[in-house]
């Protein structure tokens, strides 16, 4: 009886109208993304199943199945590139989170000249990565660059930075830390400023010392921000390219070559598109897991309506 008086789907029409408008507005951008990002990634995958060498066009583009992947995992240069990427990620992300936390704590206390400080902190983040890398390379030039000169003055023997398979990591990591710590610091600062200051007052009343307050209040409440910063930085460090390309070119030899750089030279210097695509897919899959983790961390809320 009741159903008879409530026509099914009544009123749905204007929601449908709104939905249609929604799609119409969203589609151009989403279609563009699909065209320039999703379609290519599928193409990469397809390409990775073929032998495709632009220097040997007479070979054609035969389907080879998983052969490129087999080659990749058997390739010592790729495996060491993975290792280099891991080393770089670990060193850079650890230092960036540590330094970022310190800078954020310092900035949280700044009352005067906040704008100036913020500008100073933003500058390294905002300049082109290659510019940052060049500046640091200049400072670490051997034998007479600033870093070496400073070490000599301190009475130490400076290494030949970029010619040394181990020492070359130092300017690489330092440049990346200098460039990206500001971003981490700003994320963490936003997290710090969300912490209710009354908590510290309560802790003061309870007689908790500074260190105790830090471990009992600041760190736990900063965890979400730390996690977000960690995921973004880890993802970025995994994709590292610009810094290494500019500073060491992966050298000496291939001692500092990360996966992105190896993939790049496979593709655009050796023109081995099939094999290079297989490397690209592997990079993509790893990055995708970071992306999934980030999306989970940001939480469902980020994708539903309501203030972000």
């Amino acid at each position: 009886m009741k159903n008879a008086r409530t026509p099914p789907g009544s009123g749905a029409s204007w929601l449908r109208e709104e939905a249609r408008l929604g799609w119409a507005l969203a589609l151009p951008a989403l279609a563009t993304i699909a065209l320039v990002a999703v379609f290519p990634i599928l193409w990469t995958f397809w390409e990775s199943l073929h032998l495709h060498d632009l220097r040997m066009p007479w070979l054609g583009r035969p389907f080879v199945g998983a052969a490129n992947y087999a080659e990749a995992f058997g390739d010592p240069r790729f495996r060491s590139a993975l290792g280099h990427t891991g080393v770089f990620m670990t060193a850079a992300v650890t230092l960036e989170l540590g330094a970022g936390l310190l800078v954020a704590l310092a900035l949280d206390r700044v009352s005067r000249g906040r704008g100036m400080v913020r500008t100073a902190v933003l500058l390294p983040w905002a300049i082109p990565t290659v510019v940052a890398a060049l500046i640091w390379r200049f400072m670490f030039e051997s034998p007479a660059g600033l870093a070496s000169a400073a070490l000599v003055r301190l009475g130490a023997a400076p290494p030949t930075w970029f010619a040394d398979a181990l020492a070359a990591w130092i300017p690489l990591v330092l440049a990346d830390v200098w460039k990206t710590t500001p971003f981490v610091a700003l994320l963490l600062l936003a997290g710090l400023q969300n912490i209710d200051k009354a908590l510290y007052e309560a802790a003061d009343v309870d007689g908790a010392g500074r260190w105790r307050q830090f471990t009992a209040i600041t760190l736990p409440l900063l965890r979400p921000a730390l996690l977000v910063a960690f995921l973004f930085r880890a993802l970025d460090a995994f994709r590292v390219f610009d810094v290494v390309y500019v500073m060491t070119g992966g050298g000496p030899g291939t001692a500092t070559e990360p996966v992105a750089l190896y993939t790049f030279s496979t593709l655009l210097q050796n023109l081995r598109f099939g094999f290079g695509s297989a490397l690209s897919v592997i990079v993509f899959v790893v990055a995708f897991f970071f992306a999934l983790a980030s999306i989970r961390v940001l939480g469902r809320g980020a994708f539903l309506d309501g203030p972000a």
Binding site: R5, T6, P7, S10, G11, A12, W14, L15
Partner: peptide, 10 residues
């Protein structure tokens, strides 16, 4: 007002 759509009724 029409800002919300009823789940049932007119």
């Amino acid at each position: 007002a029409g800002l919300e759509l009823p789940t049932a009724g007119r």
